[in-house]
Amino acid sequence: MTRVDTSTQVDARPIAWTIERVDWDDERAVALRAAMDDEIGPRYAKVFAAFDDETAALLAEDFAVDPATIVDVILVLDPSGEPVGHAALRALDDDLEVKRVFVDRRARGRGASRALMAELERLARARGAERLILQTGDRQPEAIALYERIGYRAIPVFPPYVRFAGSRCFAKALSTATR
């Protein structure tokens, strides 16, 4: 477990977020990923319900995360120590991919997602990555807006997400100045 204290300024009030590195199976990380599924799942329910069983099974495989490929998992903790956000880095071919970024509703709009993403970028640079890639869906406009605001640019859909027409993929070049 590694802690990194960060702070963001929101409405002239600094918020002292704490970033904590944890294992994929940390119970708080598992709970935040479940909350993400509960929130995001309904947005795509009709889309996925329209697929035949074979296609649905292939897409489930495409979106599955093998814990063995996860190289870092981080939580963002609010000032009281409550975990309010989650993100991970996955080794995907020669890239590092941002996975499972989620911030609980009670912490949104206060800089928690930016703190998560900044820490993922720091960790990726420390691992020698020249860029980060990510996939999100077309029914997550708030995620797309965040990624674009912090410098991610649209790229062609990359495997394993090519079968899902709603995939939106992004990349960000990482500065080597802070390595």
Rank of each mutant, 00 (worst) to 15 (best):
D11A: 14
R13W: 08
P14S: 11
I15P: 03
I15Y: 08
I15T: 13
I15R: 07
I15N: 03
W17Q: 01
E20M: 12
E20H: 00
E20F: 01
R21G: 07
V22I: 07
D23S: 12
D23R: 15
W24D: 01
W24S: 02
W24R: 01
W24Q: 04
D25G: 00
D25N: 13
D26L: 05
D26G: 03
D26Y: 04
E27I: 09
R28K: 15
A29V: 06
V30Q: 09
A31F: 00
L32I: 07
L32E: 04
R33F: 09
M36K: 08
D38N: 13
D38T: 14
E39P: 10
I40N: 02
G41K: 05
P42S: 07
R43V: 03
A45W: 04
A45T: 08
K46L: 13
V47G: 04
A49Q: 11
A49R: 08
A49V: 09
A49P: 00
F51D: 06
F51Y: 15
D52T: 12
D52H: 14
D52R: 12
D53S: 14
D53K: 10
D53G: 11
E54F: 12
E54A: 14
T55D: 02
T55Q: 14
A57P: 03
A57L: 12
A57W: 07
L58V: 10
L58C: 05
A60E: 15
E61R: 04
D62Y: 00
F63K: 02
V65M: 03
V65H: 03
V65L: 07
V65T: 15
D66K: 10
D66M: 06
I70P: 02
V71S: 09
V71Y: 06
D72K: 03
V73E: 02
V73M: 04
L75Q: 01
L77R: 04
D78N: 15
D78T: 03
D78L: 04
D78S: 13
P79E: 14
P79Y: 11
P79A: 10
P79M: 09
S80Q: 14
G81V: 14
E82G: 13
E82C: 08
E82S: 13
E82Q: 15
V84I: 05
V84E: 02
V84D: 05
V84N: 04
G85I: 00
G85N: 07
H86D: 12
H86Q: 13
A87D: 01
A87S: 08
A87H: 00
A88N: 02
L92F: 09
D93A: 14
D93T: 08
D93H: 12
L96R: 01
V98R: 01
R100G: 09
R100P: 08
R100H: 10
R100M: 12
V101N: 01
